[in-house]
Amino acid sequence: MRRALDLLYAAGLWLSALCILVIASLVGLQVVARIWDAILQALDLPRSGFVVLSLAEISGYLFAAASFLALAGTLKSGAHIRVTMLVNALPQRVRALIEAAALAFGALAAGFGTWAIGGYALESWRFGEVSPGLVQVPLVWPQAAMAAGAALLTIAFLDELTITVRTGRPSFRAAEDAVALGREG
């Protein structure tokens, strides 16, 4: 179970990283094409005129997908920020209780988000919504990716909730505290 979950979060994180790499590569390709055209032009040759079609739209969709797919992995590594000043000042017992409440609330909110964004994606699919540009991207793809990311986040919150109930602290507290001590840089 533990391994399966961790694998799931890692998969989301890596998919997200992949989206970011694809954005970088598409933009890079476009820039290289422009440089190539400038060289051709300087040599009085006809320009290639190569364009990455719908670059802006596709990159935007990839960014939306990337942002949500990484949510769970980012939570598990303690990188989502929050104010822990007050929680830290409390005695351990109370602190565990409040941590659990915050996690339960997070799970509730993420669950609601999953339902809402999932419904949004479903509607795009039913009405066959596509992007307005040259390449017709079905909008359900990036939106479904967002819904999947939100679902992963819900699972991650529930996962941390059980850990906190069992051990009194979320598993990412160590990472969060490490950052808090300014060790990372």
Partner: peptide, 17 residues
């Protein structure tokens, strides 16, 4: 519906890339 619209229209953005 408003949550989904707001988050989608904010994040699917070329500038943000």
């Amino acid at each position: 519906a408003i949550l989904a619209t707001a988050m989608w229209q904010q994040l699917n953005s070329w500038d943000l890339t």
